[in-house]
Structure formats: C-alpha cells, structure tokens
Simulated assay, not measured.
Amino acid sequence: MKKLLTLTLTLVLALVLVANQASAQQFSKRKQYNSVGASLNAMNYFGDITPKPSIASFRFAATRPNLGFTFTHRFAPRISGRVGLSYGRITGDDAKAADDTDPDAKYRYTRNMNFRNDILEVSAVGIFDLIENRNNYLKRPDFVPYVFGGVAFYRHNPKAADANGNYVRLQPLGTEGQRATGDTYSLNGISLPFGGGVRYKLNKSFDLGLEIGWRKTFSDYLDDVSGNYVQSRDVLPDGPARYFGWDITNARPDTYGEFNQGGGQRGKSNEDDWYIVTGVTVNYILAPRIKSPKFR
C-alpha cells in the first residue's frame, strides 16, 4: 500500500506538471470556471480494530456516513484545484470484527476494544482529468474519469463505549500509559488524500460524480490502539483509564487460557491508521461572466 501511495502521488504530480506546461498557454481565462459541490459519502477505516491484521481488511457493517462540501477551480484543459470540508465518523469493535473461532483473530477478540471517532477534515487537492476539455464549461465532455492527490488537515477525537454504553473520550485517559510518560498523541493531524473518480454531465450547470479516496495518516491512534499494555494495572488511575487500558480485556470470558497482558502487545505500533471516503457528489457550475465585445 505504501508503494501504491508513492506511485499514485508521483504519477499525479508528473501528469499535472506535464499537462500544465503544455496547455496553460492555450487555455484562456474566459474558459476557466468555478464550481461548488456537496457530497454524501461512506466512511471506513483501516487499523488495529479490524477483522484481520491487514490494511486491506475492514468491515462493511462498520461503514458510517460522511458529509462534504467542495469548491473547485478549473485552471487548464485537464487540471483543476479543489478545496474541501468534510465531517464523518469511523468505527470499530473487536467483539464484532474478530471471530473467536479464527486462530488469527482470537487475540483481538480477547482484547475486546471498541471505538468511534468523528473526523473533521479540510483538504486541498489537484485533479487531473483523463479526458481533456479545451472548450468552455458548456461543451465539457459528458463523462470524465479523473485522479487526484493532495494534502489534508484533520481533527479527530476517539471515544469508546464503557460497560454502561456511555461513550468516553480516550485520548485524555492515556490507555497505554501516556499520562505517565507525557507522550500523549495529538488530536490534530496531517493526511495525504489520493484516489480517483468519474464525473457525469447532467446538464449545462450540474455534474454528478462518484469518487473514492484514501487518506494516509501519520498516526496510529485513530482507534486509540497502537503499542503495548502498561506493565501493571496500577500504572493507570482507577476509573475509565483502567477500564479501557486493562479491565476491558479481562471482561471477555477466558476461553483460551490466561491472557498475558502486562507489557504485552496491544496494537501494531509499526503501522499507521488509514481512512477511506467513498461517495456521490453533485457539483453546480458557477457560470463565468462573459464580456461582450466592444465595437467602435
């Protein structure tokens, strides 16, 4: 997946640079235009609380909604820039994702962790159309596939349900002993969005789009699970921190013998979490004002 990310971003950048040099001089400002869009999306995540210890593993039942708004400016026959604002949720639950009959999932089943995380994202991406349009917006192609890549800032806040079903913020608890070490993870982060989609021309003013985009984050704490358990239960203060950092694991009926928890592995600390956004977008084109020629 890391190689795919690097290859995709490199390809998008190379295509944008080449196309920009070749066509920018031939694409007059009067053919450029803006559009605004609204999208209804499905949101999923790849991380520690998934059915398999693989970045390709996620539960369709864990899909949650995401709502987004965008502003796009068309610069050249193939090139557009887009800024976006979106808000959505990711979720995971060991009790539902891990099969207690699967030898590869018994560890996560015993861990018994759950989370949900509401993510607010602001993004800026470059879009490269695979079909060019050298005309104005009225003569744009009916069907256009495209790829995109860029950068995003996100704000997140992982929570988990306690024994009473109440959701508790996890980051302040330091469930892996962060309060003792002072190494608390941040609730702000940078991600690299990339992916592709298709646009379909409904009429002169509206486009309908379908898009899928991956977000490569640089955090392993979207789900509050990353490294090891604390060495001793007493390291965690009594209350929610001890419940989520230690007790919740022992709440699972012990079917597989004693669970060696003190200092043991809690998550895959060598892999960052990802999230994916798939959805439908409606774009409205803000028709540019065309100046009438002056006659003398």
Rank of each mutant, 00 (worst) to 15 (best):
I49V: 14
F71T: 05
V235N: 05
F295E: 12
Y284S: 08
D238R: 05
A19W: 02
Q178L: 09
G149V: 05
L17F: 09
D220N: 13
V122C: 10
N112R: 03
V235K: 02
G165N: 04
T63M: 14
S292A: 14
V122R: 01
A241K: 01
T101C: 06
V168K: 04
T6W: 12
S232Q: 08
P172T: 02
V282R: 04
T50V: 14
S123M: 04
P193K: 09
D100P: 11
S39A: 14
V83S: 12
I285R: 12
F60C: 00
Y146P: 05
A42I: 10
Y107H: 13
D48Q: 03
D94S: 12
A42H: 00
R140T: 12
A161I: 05
A251I: 00
N41S: 12
P141E: 07
Y221K: 07
Q26W: 02
L170C: 10
Q231C: 00
D272G: 00
N250P: 00
N250R: 09
A251G: 12
R296F: 12
V18G: 05
P103E: 09
K159N: 11
F295L: 12
L236G: 01
S292H: 10
G84H: 08
S232K: 02
D273V: 04
G174N: 01
T50R: 13
I127W: 02
L208D: 09
I248H: 01
P293T: 14
N166I: 07
L210A: 14
Y229D: 02
G182F: 07
F58Q: 08
A124C: 09
D238F: 04
G177F: 08
N166R: 11
F115K: 06
Y284I: 05
T101Y: 08
N283S: 14
A287P: 00
I79T: 09
D183H: 08
Y87P: 01
N114I: 09
S219H: 01
L85G: 04
K96Y: 04
N20D: 15
